[in-house]
């Protein structure tokens, strides 16, 4: 459970975070989306008790980060963007250290469980120094989860690792949904879309939009989008024909074809079929286009 109300963080005269409010409920994965320098890391650092807010109130599991910092810190698992590790410790020692430091008396079972879960069991006695970037990322996740915190905060967990490992990390995060409140930041749009239940888009310290990916799609790219690729006439003639269709509001060139947009939920396929028949065109491809967060994001950022 995370509650953020009117959060402001200033560095000198610069406001890194400017009046942000949001909530995250247990069992929910919330994605913080925004370009670099949007204020994602600052927000997360305030949530973990690393730095205090300039204004506003931040509560984690009902505890205020300023007044009950220790209670908050006990209930948060955090993986910073850089995935810091102690190079000269063994994998097992590293996890045990953090588990103990976060108050666990007998962390052995938990540590072993984590090692199994992140497939680090065979490397338990290796020095952290010898781990690859991807393995360190896993270790960082294990570190954040080893004390079984109700709230997990992951800052750009997929940055700088290879695609296979990215997929693993995403799966792991998705699996956290059952028992944890997860706050997850990324500047990769597709990733957020895949992983998160809810997305908060921040830009220059402000919340631009929030909601499930579907809600956002509805709000910022309503209507039906259809991709068609035709042949038999010149492209410009085809474009003119498509634009003449009454239900089509917008035609945009894409790849070898066009994307037709309609603000209504009308089915454009029948209309397109009639043009094909009428002008003896050949249909190469026709499919419905899903709205991506990327579109929404560009849409929002461009507008401002």
């Amino acid at each position: 459970m995370i509650e953020v109300k009117n959060l402001v963080k200033r560095y000198g005269t610069f406001s890194a975070v400017n009046n942000i409010s949001f909530e995250a409920a247990p069992g929910e994965i919330v994605g913080l989306l925004g370009p670099n320098g949007a204020g994602k890391t600052t927000t997360m650092r305030i949530l973990t008790g690393f730095m205090p807010p300039s204004e506003g109130s931040v509560k984690v599991e009902g505890f205020d980060v300023l007044e009950n910092s220790m209670e908050v810190r006990r209930r948060v698992g955090y993986m910073p963007e850089r995935v810091p590790v102690y190079l000269d410790m063994t994998v097992h020692g590293y996890l045990t250290f953090w588990a103990k430091l976060r108050g666990m008396k007998q962390p052995n079972t938990q540590v072993n469980q984590m090692l199994e879960r992140f497939s680090l069991g065979d490397r338990r006695n290796k020095l952290v120094r010898s781990l690859s970037k991807g393995l360190r990322q896993r270790l960082g996740l294990a570190q954040a989860l080893v004390h079984n915190p109700p709230v997990v905060i992951l800052d750009e967990p997929t940055i700088g690792i290879d695609p296979q490992q990215v997929i693993e990390v995403r799966e792991t995060v998705r699996a956290l949904r059952e028992n944890h409140t997860v706050l997850f930041s990324s500047h990769i749009l597709s990733e957020v879309e895949q992983v998160c239940d809810r997305v908060i888009i921040i830009h220059k310290g402000k919340i631009m939009a929030s909601g499930t990916p579907q809600q956002l799609a509805k709000k910022y790219k309503p209507g039906v989008h259809l991709y068609v690729s035709l042949s038999g006439r010149s492209q410009s003639e085809i474009r003119a024909l498509l634009e003449s269709l009454p239900k089509v509001d917008n035609v945009r060139e894409q790849a070898a074809g066009f994307v037709l947009s309609s603000r209504t939920d009308a089915d454009l396929r029948a209309d397109v079929s009639s043009i094909i028949a009428k002008h003896q065109l050949t249909l190469l491809e026709m499919r419905l286009v899903e709205v991506t967060l990327e579109d929404i994001f560009l849409n929002i950022v461009d507008k401002r």
Binding site: T48, F50, R82, L101
Partner: peptide
């Protein structure tokens, strides 16, 4: 330098 300070400072330790 290693950034582990960030972890230490977010652990429930004064």
């Amino acid at each position: 330098r290693e950034g582990t300070m960030e972890l230490l400072l977010t652990a429930p330790v004064s």
